[in-house]
Design a protein around this nucleic acid. Structure first.
Lengths: 147, 147
DNA sequence: TATTGTTATACTCTATAACTATA
DNA sequence: TATAGTTATAGAGTATAACAATA
């Protein structure tokens, strides 16, 4: 088997991806800038990206259990980054949307909390950045596409 | 600014990468097959890849604090996946290497615990896989490259 | 009864601080 | 005194189970 084949082997590629992604995620978790956790930022970004969502929908999107999302949203609400509104027709349902402060926070995140990764990316060639950009898209699709 | 430029912007790319990586890592953590945690598998893989290492070296490679590595290695040792040996000349130093069982475990990991990712990768085109393979390499370098 | 979300509780992982033993 | 590693303890973050409110 040639090296070029080995590099594209499903299992090998999956293993390498998993290690790389897991390590980088741990590193980024340590980078945790400020009082807002990774999960909270991720949820906040989903709310911004997908618009007003119910807690259940958010939990599904973020792949966490409902009680976890309750806590995440409670923290974001306390920080003034999201706003909850009860559905008028079905008062069991709560919808979440970003506040202006939440949107500003995300903007700052993109230029400040990602400084670590951005600094690393900045040292890369345009070609390498293009690869990472395409990979990011693929990883997004990979997660969206399931079941 | 053209879309193609935006895609290669340091900050935007970093933000997208972070979200994608964080989400995938969380998804993979849930996939946690069996009694061996992500961190343990990651450490075990490093031991296999880099050969016999001291606990301190391992902690540095894995970007965790020494007490965390102590616990990780204790768990791996209890599971019979690694073996510790005390340095004869300096009895403060403990070195860790994989056992046969540890190597077998990693082999199984690659074909079983990564099933989720591998299944997703399998649906991708050869071109997309090549992108992910290159991205994996870049992410590895990104982490290795820091001081 | 079924569904949406919450509260209570416990577990896992990691960190910091204090300690042991070796040098 | 300095260093390698461990033990003690605490803090996030998440999960499962039991519950409350609404339909």
């Amino acid at each position: 088997m040639k090296i070029s084949d080995a590099l594209l082997d499903d299992t090998e590629l999956a293993a390498r991806l998993r290690l790389a992604v897991t390590r980088l995620a741990r590193r980024l978790r340590q980078q945790t800038a400020g009082e807002v956790s990774q999960s909270q930022v991720s949820a906040l970004a989903s709310v911004e990206r997908l618009g007003p969502l119910t807690l259940g929908e958010l939990a599904a999107v973020e792949r966490v259990q409902p009680p976890s999302m309750t806590r995440i949203i409670a923290a974001l609400e306390e920080a003034g980054l999201v706003e909850r509104t009860v559905d008028e027709r079905d008062r069991r349902i709560a919808r979440v949307k970003t506040t202006v402060a939440g949107q500003r926070f995300l903007e700052r995140s993109r230029s400040r909390k990602n400084a670590y990764l951005a600094a690393r990316v900045r040292t890369m060639s345009v070609e390498d950045r293009a690869v990472l950009a395409r990979a990011a898209t693929l990883l997004e699709q990979l997660l969206e596409g399931e079941e």
